[in-house]
Computed example of a mutant assay.
Amino acid sequence: MSEKTYRPRREDFRRFYTIGTRWGDHDSYGHVQNVVYYSFFDSAISHFLVEQGTLDIDSSPVIGLIVESSCTFFSPITFPDQVTVGLRIAHLGTSSARYELGIFCNDEPTVSALGYVVYVYVDRASNKPVAIPRLVRDELLTLTD
């Protein structure tokens, strides 16, 4: 099965966040703009990290920087749809994590879009890669299979 035809289902993800689409999210064709999907990804990951107490946006000494991202689109989302972002960790390295995110439209069982974001964890002051802190790693492990 090709990657383009592989459409994960809700049960393939470990954590979920619901986000409403906004009037300005759509393009002239009535579809949510591609860039907004990346905002959904960023919001879900940040929400998870803050909720778990592993990220203080203003003062965490170790932060995750995005070094790679991608999104495959399967079916359109429009306004006023509800979006649920499914979150899981596909790979957890020493200083990096690959988050996989499924965008679900309303109550659909399969993804409308599937993306990934690779974070490299760095020292905030030096911007040099460091090992993922134990507290962060423990929370990220809850998102793995």
Rank of each mutant, 00 (worst) to 15 (best):
A113G: 14
T54D: 13
I63S: 04
Q33G: 13
D58A: 14
I45G: 03
N127G: 01
I132P: 10
T78C: 09
L55R: 06
T5W: 05
T94S: 09
L143W: 04
E11F: 08
I63L: 06
V32Y: 08
D12F: 01
I45K: 09
P8W: 02
T84Q: 15
S28V: 14
D56T: 10
T142Y: 00
V67Q: 02
I77N: 12
E51Q: 12
T54C: 15
D42Y: 00
V36P: 05
V122P: 07
V62A: 07
A44W: 07
I89G: 06
I132S: 06
L114M: 09
Y29K: 09
L87W: 03
T5H: 11
V83Q: 06
V111A: 13
F48H: 11
R134I: 12
T5V: 12
V111H: 10
Q33T: 14
S28M: 15
G115L: 01
R22S: 07
G30S: 07
R14N: 11
R124S: 08
Y37S: 05
A131N: 05
S43W: 05
I66L: 07
D56I: 12
S46F: 00
Q33S: 15
V36M: 04
S2F: 08
E68W: 01
V85Y: 06
D123L: 00
K128C: 05
S69T: 14
V111S: 10
Y99P: 10
D25C: 08
S70F: 13
T21L: 00
R88L: 10
N127M: 15
V136E: 07
G24L: 08
D145P: 14
P61W: 02
H31F: 11
G102L: 08
L55N: 12
S96R: 08
E11D: 15
G53P: 09
P61L: 04
L92Y: 04
H91R: 15
T54A: 13
